[in-house]
Amino acid sequence: MIGWFVRRLLQSVFVIVAMTVIVFVGVNVIGDPVAILIAPDADQAERLQVVQSLGLDRPLWEQYGRFLYGALQGDFGKSFVFGQPALQIILERMPATLELAFCAVFLAVVIGIPLGLYAGLRPRSILAKTVMAGSIFGFSLPSFWVGLLLIMVFGVQLGWLPSSGRGMTREFLGIHWSFLTLDGLTHLILPACNLALFKVSLVMRLVRAGVREVLPQEYVKFARAKGLTERRVIFVHVLKNIMIPVVTVIGLEFGSTIAFSVVTESIFAWPGMGKLIIDSINLLDRPMIVAYLILIVFLFVTINLVVDLLYTVLDPRVQHNGEG
């Protein structure tokens, strides 16, 4: 188990390093960074000075070494736009995105799992059929369109919920959070629902499919033959067997929400990382883009690691003694 974990950790490090190469090559080598950095009417001397100051006259491996050295210390350079260290700016925006992603995933779990269970246990019921049909909309309606609809209905027409910004925040552990104030919470609802719609549909269908698959298994019948209550049969014997795919999907959804909640954050003017990265791309703020990409890779690798660890808890047949 320990051996497996160490190997898995090394694998993760390798993935991250490989990603830094790709990002480095992608951003620093392809395309001419100097062209972006200097004024179009700059002369040759000015140009040379910029090249030297950025170290672009050094061999490629040395440039990469410097980049990696900086990256290891969290230094991805200063944002062209903000003039501050790129990573710091991103990390400042991260709590907003984290809390939004967490709320969306939370909604997906507390709504998706019970609905999926119900739809799996009573596939012929009207509620199950309605919910299944509804999930098709959850999959296929474009996120921006649903977001606009939510704003139109709940923000504009009914005026029940705010639809822009984070609202009031409160500091906790030195970070500003919206969910700690009532105003902040009301600001969270619409964007979180917007993000959650797809996830609820996904989790629900996954759970439903799992229930349909596990229910006819002999061990479920045997559990009933022991005289267990239906509650115990469903919530222990059935549910524990379908948690593996559910945990995987929840983990990946959490990661992708953090990385790609761009649309929702833009629509609801949520000051998170997604909105930041779009702005940075528009302005070709390269240190920001690089720092962002590396951070996201780091995030996904970590989530995958956690999910793998959860497997060992959820499924005793997954054993990590020795094999990669």
């Binding site: 298994q217 002999e218 559990a223 014997h237 524990k240 067997n241 005793p316 047949r317």
Partner: peptide, 10 residues
């Protein structure tokens, strides 16, 4: 079938 009657994850 004894391979199928016990719950694999408990």
């Amino acid at each position: 079938d004894p391979m199928m009657t016990l719950n694999p994850v408990l």
